[in-house]
Amino acid sequence: MKKLDKNAKTAFLNYGLVAVFFVAVEIMMATGVMTNSFKGQLIPIISYVIMALALNLVVGISGELSLGHAGFMSVGAFTGVIVASSLQDSIGASPLRLLIAILAGALTAAIAGIVIGIPVLRLGGDYLAIVTLAFGEIIKNVMNCMYVGVDSKGLHMSLMDANSLGMEPTGRMILNGPMGATGIKKISGFIAGIILLLIVLVIIQNLVGSRTGRAIKAIRDNRIAAEASGLNVTKYRLIAFVTSAAIAGSAGVLYALNYSTVAPKKFDFNTSILVLVFVVLGGIGNMTGAMIAAAVLTVLPEMLRQFQDYRMLVYAIVLIVVMIATNNEKVKALFAKKEKGEAKANG
């Protein structure tokens, strides 16, 4: 039972972290110290934290490399926008619309995950990185020429241009090719984001702590031994990958419904790599680390805006320091010692 306690401890640490973040933001809002720029960053922070958790499931827990997770975010985002926009008149309550949009975004991203995962994960080697890389680019290009509009007759879709949609004059454009989604009603909110983040944390942590998660980690550690122990390797790799894709899709919906416009190029290769950086800096497989890295590295560029000239320099230094702190055994040991010492001094 000792081991179970340790897992439970990190799980509660992560829930606690989210709670502290929530309370801190609420206090800042109540006391008026919240700057507008930070306020605008809240949903992106939560979205990227969820992305980092999703990718960590693949990279850290399952031990595969995905270089196209922004693609799943994109699939989720634009599905969410289409669903939310088309329900605009029929469902008045925006939280319900957001919920349906998130579920729809997660579902389509999961389907994309299955379509990629089934052929690729049956293969033995590290093909996932290459295929996800291609997937991310393909999704970006498809979304770049996707035109969707809605009128009284329902949804219209085209891969040519806006005119070929043949909409009624009263119709409304939802997706506009390279310009992406325009005129989005912002229905994502901070509290909705926190709730989604908590649900994602529960799903991932409970999955990892279950029989399924144990199998996924075993396959990561030694595939041949896992097969020899009677594990269906493809099945468990697929569960990890598709769950991750669905969660990335939900993050995409939350993100997109926080802006009035979102372009497909937002979810490009750079975004995939950025999320990978969160996971690596957080210490691969370390959920707490991934969450902190995602949050810090999302706000940092904005916070450093006032030091225009030194911004990138400071950003680079922080990156290096975080990297050393999270991945260096000696530094880790030092921090551990210091914490113990402080605890003793306090107690």
């Binding site: 081991k3 702590g209 029989r211 199998a215 980690k217 075993a218 030694n222 009677g230 594990l231 569960i239």
Partner: peptide, 26 residues
């Protein structure tokens, strides 16, 4: 399974005799 505990390694051996689904686990 190097990064798993001793107990978890044995539980992988027991895997097909542990009866609950992923959903029940989550």
């Amino acid at each position: 399974f190097d990064k798993l505990t001793v107990e978890e390694n044995v539980k992988i051996g027991l895997h097909n005799h542990i009866n609950y689904s992923s959903i029940e686990g989550v």
